[in-house]
Design a protein around this nucleic acid. Sequence first.
RNA 1: GCCCCCGUAGCUCAGGGGAUAGAGCACAGGAUUCCUAAUCCUGGUGUCGCAUGUUCGAAUCAUGCCGGGGGCACCA
Length: 581
Amino acid sequence: MPKSDPEKGEKVLRNRIQKAVEDAYKQGVVEGVLPDVSLPASHQVVPTKQEVHGDFASNLAMITASEAKRSPRELAGCLAKILEPNPIFHKVDVAGPGFLNFFVTTTWWQENLCTIWEAGDSYGESGAGNGRLVQVEFVSANPTGPLHVGHGRGAAVGDSLARVLKAAGFSVEREYYINDIGNQMRTLGASVYLRYLEYFGQEVEFPKEYYQGDYIRDIASGIASGEGDKYLDMTQESCLTFFIDTAVKIIASDIRKDLEEFGVRYDNWFSEKTLHESGLVDRTISELQDKGYMFEEQGALWFRATALGDEKDRVVKRSNGVLTYFASDIAYHRHKLERGYDLLVDIWGADHHGYVARVKAAIKALSYKEDKLQVLLVQLVNLLEGGKIKAMSTRAGEFVTLREVLDDVGSDAARFIFLTRRCDSHLDFDLDLARSQSQENPVYYVQYAHARLSSVFRNAGEQEISLAEPQDIDVSLLNTSEDIKLLKQLDVFPRLVADAALALEPYRVSYYLTELAGQLHGYYTRHRFITDDPDLTQARLLLADVTRRVFRKGLGLLGVSAPEKMCKRSQGTASALLSDT
RNA sequence: GCCCCCGUAGCUCAGGGGAUAGAGCACAGGAUUCCUAAUCCUGGUGUCGCAUGUUCGAAUCAUGCCGGGGGCACCA
């Protein structure tokens, strides 16, 4: 058994093939069989989509054809002849309009398994991010009520993205921005105050625009039982701060608990209030004033966003002297930028897309490059039940909370489903599907693959079979088409993670895992891992071990558990979600 | 009206210059002496919204149009 070769891995293989093709062209020129043209930079060696096209394809013949004044197929034929003897190929084909198709030897894939094994639990990680420091800010829901399902999607996307970035060699921090100041807070405090009065039997008129949810009553009665009736004698104005602070504290801590139950932990909880208290908001505004990015009109102070790519100028301070939230946002992003991150990722609801241009304008005004900030807009979630959309009215406290969904379908199913779509596409979250303990539920499909492999090792343990050192294993026994397909799919993993990180698209991981699970299940029904032949058993256990690790790692990137056994959870009650109808 | 996103199989969606456009669900049939059948196998469907253009090549890029959603407040 040859030792593993550090020169292996999918990326290396591709680069090697690309170089081989280009060298072959030069050799052809020297030998006089190919016309002397400059090799275009657009030459690419790419993985193929179909098996019949081999493992990789080159488009060199097609893109040089017009300059070379020869037919692509003819050029490809010459190249193929030169490349054919290369030992990493067992075949080089000319196909279609002039593609070169490369079939890598099975030996390469088999030996590559040892390379993967040696990477251990770090397999899938890479240095694609070069240690660059990224901050991901997500959810950041106002602490005026519990999180709803839409926030859940943002949480799943943000957290998983952070995990993927970390695996791809970025340093990552997660941040939650708490809007704990401003008009909404006054409304929140006043809402609690009125419920507090009600608690003590006072007749109050509860305005429509106040927060209607029952949780407001809970907070009020909590205050009543903890602090008694001492606020009854005070004016609303004099005790409002207390009600605001208490309500925010309770709601924020509930939000935090919900998120933790969802597997999301933050490095920083950043308070908007502190931006004002430290004077950063005022300081930033006056600096932008000095730079000429501010002007006054009709008594208000405006940020000249149109000078920097936005369609409108934006108010920073209203004529009544009150700062807008945008003023805080400018200061907040400045604060983030000054903390030295190489990249800021903001994850917002799609309804905030009008905000992107103005915040980017602010970043430019602060003399930073606008691409320091990447905004991901997460589209709305439609909750489906019984094939119908459950309408969510944000007003009047009628919404399905994240907690209800978690209690109903569990964190794993919820996270997986949130991560099966690109974030800019609308997501139909089918509760019946998420709840179902069987076939249709995509999360179990992947988890079951992991559980099956775990079960194989449990059985091996019972038979006192343990995995030998890979160098003592004959990997050439992994020679069925299912073996080779699995080996190839495993090989793709690190590149997939790196690409997902660079594209800021964590959902790619769930696609990959679903595909890998399909291959594993197919393998499982056709072949046994534990066989009568000890050598074959060792080879297959090595494959099983590596595959299992990829599942564990991949599920970890989604924040989904990788169970050793599948066990039915107690059926959640559907009625819990219908309480608002 | 202006801006952003979307339009691909009956449904939900991948693919985002490359070859005969894919997967899941749904529908029908089949598979279990053997590591978990929450699994596997077989069966077919497409005007890639429409139209021009860019080129060796367009579902993919550009422009226009049609349709759906969202955004365009001294709101957040």
